[in-house]
Nucleic acid binder design. Structure first.
Lengths: 251, 251
DNA sequence: CGATGGCTTGAGAGGCTTCAATGCCGGTGG
DNA sequence: CCACCGGCATTGAAGCCTCTCAAGCCATCG
């Protein structure tokens, strides 16, 4: 079968690393109706409290989920890269409890909840697979709590770079590699619970230790082995190199 | 129907505030096989990396989900009170990426994954409802990232008290109330990304402001209105006072 | 009654923030 | 084509919030 490598294919590839799906189930996912949309940088494409009727799959660019405190101090709680369904959770919880914003120019594809709920109801294995994706997003969130709560600024930043490298590479890392990561230092600060100024200084610490090098939106990792050691990083929580979970079937 | 108010009944009550279920679906949940177990304080009942085959419903006591950094600095990423399914996520992601520990003597009820997956496969609405519970747990996690990342110690602690009061009361709060919350100051520190010493001093700040009063494991809130104002707390993310989500049916 | 675990308090150090100014680069309009 | 402008990055200095270390206290429990 030649599968047109559309935006959904990218999503399906990731899902299949985690859940077993039959050919029929896979094609049900690939047949989901999509509507592409281009979002300019800094624009919310899901607003706080909004009642959404579609899920957003990131095709290109970078999106963040924003929580916020009273006095405008924003905190990014999750990051979504191409292939991620940024708000899959909205399928079962349609009123947005946090905003979704494009960090750079981003193209997303919108998929109606109705269509997703339809195939989830028809194929229990699909429901399980999507549920599982949400649970893995939660595991990442949980790691972010640890990161922000219990690590120093430089380790925190190193850990974030590890996670993003691992996710961009779908778990296929090499000792030396680089990846596009177009977040500003201010964005990094909002992910790490720091200030932009301190992120800047912290960046310099990592560079001085010859762990990473940065230029205009691309992160170059000089030694994966030393970086994960420094960052206290263990990729199991991202579940990209795992034996896919067998489907559930009605007994 | 006289429903025996067992441990599952407590769980079902909470689920029904969020999802519509038919009588048949409800009784399928209530008929889940359970096995009660008593866990002494400070004991892990799910270990890191363990491959579990059952989910744990908290019946009595208090449990925490622990993440940890390299040098033993632990961070509590989630708290589970009676009525919570502490690791419902394990149904679709059986290898534990974080440990579960009883903070006080806790009785849990273990429910085999097989039984849950069975009713989830048979009743798509149940799958959706359980999926939704996981998503709401993730929303709470997301709020914890904001809390730890972007709030000062005293606001952070106040916010935690708000969340726990709201959850213990299932969203039925009153201006003045108290609730049992048997976490030590060291536990609080691990939830908030602080040290026990600083938690102690911070407690004193909240007491001095006449917001809460504490004695031996019970939190007394002196003014809910002033506390949520101080804590920057908005309970929507907990989704306890929400119109339950309609079920999904195969089209 | 000594041991234990949790709470309390003090003093000093340090990591991160705040405020503020400067530099850099790409985009835009005259 | 160049000058200007705005967003982002960089750097310095001072201060505060929180940590660390350390000691003392109080209840509970064998």
């Amino acid at each position: 079968m030649t599968r047109s490598y559309n935006s959904l294919g990218q999503f399906l590839d990731k899902v299949r690393r985690r859940s077993v799906l039959t050919a029929e189930e896979q094609s049900a996912i690939l047949s989901l109706p999509v509507r592409a949309e281009q979002i300019p940088a800094h624009m919310d494409f899901v607003e706080l409290g909004e009642h959404v009727d579609h899920a957003c799959l990131i095709v290109h660019g970078l999106a963040g989920r924003f929580g916020q405190g009273r006095e405008g101090n924003r905190q990014i709680t999750a990051l979504h890269i191409p292939g991620d369904m940024a708000d899959l959770h909205s399928v079962v919880s349609p009123s947005a409890t946090s905003a979704l914003q494009a960090l750079t120019t981003t193209t997303v594809v919108k998929i109606p909840h109705g269509a997703i709920r339809d195939i989830a109801a028809r194929y229990p294995s699909i429901a399980q697979a999507l549920w599982r994706e949400c649970v893995i997003d939660a595991a990442i969130l949980s790691e972010w709590v640890v990161n922000v709560g219990r690590r120093t600024a430089s380790v925190r930043l190193a850990h974030l770079y590890c996670e993003m490298a691992y996710r961009y590479r779908l778990g296929e890392v090499t000792e030396r590699m680089s990846f596009d990561f177009p977040a500003t230092q201010h964005h990094l600060a909002d992910m790490l619970g720091l200030t932009a100024v301190h992120v800047n200084r912290t960046l310099r610490v990592l560079e001085a230790a010859d762990l990473v090098r940065l230029k205009r939106g691309v992160v170059e990792i000089l030694s994966w082995a030393r970086l994960i050691e420094y960052a206290d990083f263990d990729p199991v929580y991202i579940q990209l190199n795992v034996t896919p979970l067998a489907p559930m079937r009605a007994g």
